[in-house]
């Protein structure tokens, strides 16, 4: 899998990113998308104590909150990078929210959504080298260095 590391922050080139809201999207074979927080987002938040996604069946517009996360220092929303209906949430987060820190792109996914207009919404996201370059600028501007509790090498 093509990956890039910038200040220890992992960017997977095959994902789509909302760089502004620090979320990623993986397009699944069944037409759904998996959504999660980026490595940059989990590092900025610090060790996450609670991650509470909205429930399956809830419809959300792009830019609206689909989950809230709480670290020891901050509470904030995870904003949806797509418009669609939530079809599944990562139930493992209820008892182990730090999966978001440990494995932001794999076991720490937040939810799955059935997008209303996948192709249109993907146009507003960045992927591949474009995502890497956008993150390089953002990480540089914000002075972010990512920290992993474990699992750095799995990407």
């Amino acid at each position: 899998m093509a990956t890039e590391k910038i200040n220890e922050c992992v960017i997977l080139k095959n994902l789509y990113y909302s760089v502004q809201d620090n979320t990623w999207v993986r397009v699944n074979d069944d037409g759904t998308v998996t959504i999660g927080m980026t490595d940059v987002a989990q590092s900025l938040a610090g060790p996450i104590l609670h991650a509470r996604p909205k429930k399956p069946g809830v419809s959300r517009e792009k830019g609206k909150p689909i989950a809230t996360v709480e670290s020891g220092k901050w509470v904030g929303p995870v904003k949806s990078p797509m418009t669609g209906e939530i079809v599944e949430v990562n139930e493992n987060l209820e008892n182990n929210a730090q999966l978001v820190n440990k494995s932001p792109y794999q076991n720490g996914w937040i939810l799955k959504m059935k997008p209303v207009n996948l192709e249109e919404d993907l146009k507003d996201l960045l992927t591949g080298d474009a995502a890497v370059e956008a993150y390089r600028a953002k990480i540089d501007q914000d002075g972010v260095t990512c920290t992993h509790i474990e699992g750095t090498d799995e990407y």
Partner: peptide
Amino acid sequence: PRKIDTRF
């Protein structure tokens, strides 16, 4: 500041 520690 974007970094939470610096913000605090």
